[in-house]
Design a protein around this nucleic acid. Structure first.
Lengths: 240, 240
DNA sequence: TTCATAATCTGGTCTATACCAGATTGGAGC
DNA sequence: GCTCCAATCTGGTATAGACCAGATTATGAA
């Protein structure tokens, strides 16, 4: 016996879920168009969109701008406390990674970065902006702000692979401690455009601030992930 | 010069933001009703709701069911790697905490818990379900599954304070290592109802699986937070 | 004053429709 | 086969209503 006073769009959400399971749709497969679905389920496009938005919030489906709705791939497991490069841990999980460098520049430390890093505002800083894909779906964009005092000439290197691997192998740099911040936010502006999603799409923000043994600022990493793309997984302890 | 091809609801989002700043609205203050806003900004309720939803996604405002829109309080900082009780770290940040135990029971280990904990399915397990407030806004609900082998009679104690403090002081239990998982999800079912939010509201899921020195399962913690309620903040390193 | 009830206000849901812009597709011409 | 362009398909945006249910407030009786 189902609750009859349940709103239509929630009933549709459940029916769509069941329909997707029954059809055995899998990762990256496309759903029928909204107009077709609204006919099939005897409702309007507005209401079917409400139901689809629910499934989107739950991470079952995602939208590709003006192309349609698709089944969301499995979440990527991610441990921000470790230094394993993106390409490596994506590959280890059986997916195909890709990184695009959207731009890189030598610029000046802005005020907000000065506050968290301890660097003096106006001094030089490397800034790299990259987009990362898994199985050809763009999952995140990332800003890296790197202290050039410890790695002169970094921008001449390729930034399509792990920056930390490069810092380690070329400049013998490794972080001594890190301040990590994580919180949900809405993707907007440059980040939303770069990921080709609508303004206000749910996302997850991950920030990592790395310092060396002497307490010097090494690097700031600001990642903007799609909300359905990852599952953070950390093991604490097993030491002392 | 503003982009004229910008959708109305995004212009409204920005104008609402500016209006809120100009009015100096602060934490927990109420916005005018949607009907009033749609008149004031010369648009329809549907469109104003789109703009409000954007600000909600950004965490600037939140809705209280059929009561209105309110300014979101500052995010709570939270470090899931530490054992500081909820009441303590909320108080330390200048807020007022409150915890309600919605129910507690002695039940049997379900299959999914058996898989992650190593306990045999069907064996007894304590289950506590609580709701936590900050400044009288319900921010999260939490399920605790506790291994009764290590703390007999736990349910007789009050669970409105820190469970870990009790485990530490009464039963001399402390976790040796933890597996933590964090990801965004949609609040639905029991969790949405308990927090008095609409089905599909954006949330953040935090799971902590704790084991003692011998590798025995101690406790599983499943927290469902409002997406705009917290900022996870962890320091890694400064050891070895 | 207290308490129940009625009126009112609020966001939540839903219909039916229209047009837009970007993405894709199909066909004409080379 | 190829390129280019037009037709078509897609989701995205917007209007103008309507009614509902829960929350709040005003009212009036005890």
């Amino acid at each position: 016996m189902s609750r009859t006073d349940y709103p239509v769009y929630l009933q549709l959400r459940d029916r769509l879920w069941e329909w997707i399971e029954a059809e055995q749709l899998t990762s990256q497969q496309r759903l029928p168009s909204e107009r077709e679905l609204s006919e099939r389920f005897h409702t309007t496009r507005v209401t079917i969109r409400q139901a689809l938005s629910q499934l989107e919030a739950e991470g079952l489906i995602f939208r590709s701008n003006r192309r349609g709705w698709y089944i969301t791939p499995e979440r990527l497991r991610y441990d921000p406390s470790r230094d394993v490069g993106f390409n490596r841990y994506v590959t280890e999980q059986g997916f195909c990674p890709r990184t695009e460098t959207l731009f890189k520049e030598l610029t000046e430390v802005p005020d907000w970065l000065s506050e968290v890093s301890g660097l003096e505002a106006g001094t030089p800083i490397y800034h790299v902006f990259r987009r990362r894909y898994v199985d050809e779906r763009g999952l995140l964009v990332e800003h890296n702000y790197i202290n050039p005092a410890h790695c002169p000439g970094l921008l001449g290197e390729s930034t399509d692979l792990s920056i930390w691997q490069m810092l380690r192998e070329k400049y013998d740099l490794r972080p001594e401690h890190r301040d990590i911040e994580i919180y949900p936010l809405a993707l907007k502006g440059l980040e939303a455009e770069s990921l080709n999603v609508n303004q206000g799409t749910a996302g997850l923000y991950i920030q990592r601030l790395s310092f060396d043994q002497g307490g010097d600022f090494l690097e700031l990493d600001r990642e903007y992930w799609l909300h359905d793309a990852l599952k953070i997984s950390v093991r604490i302890g097993e030491r002392d």
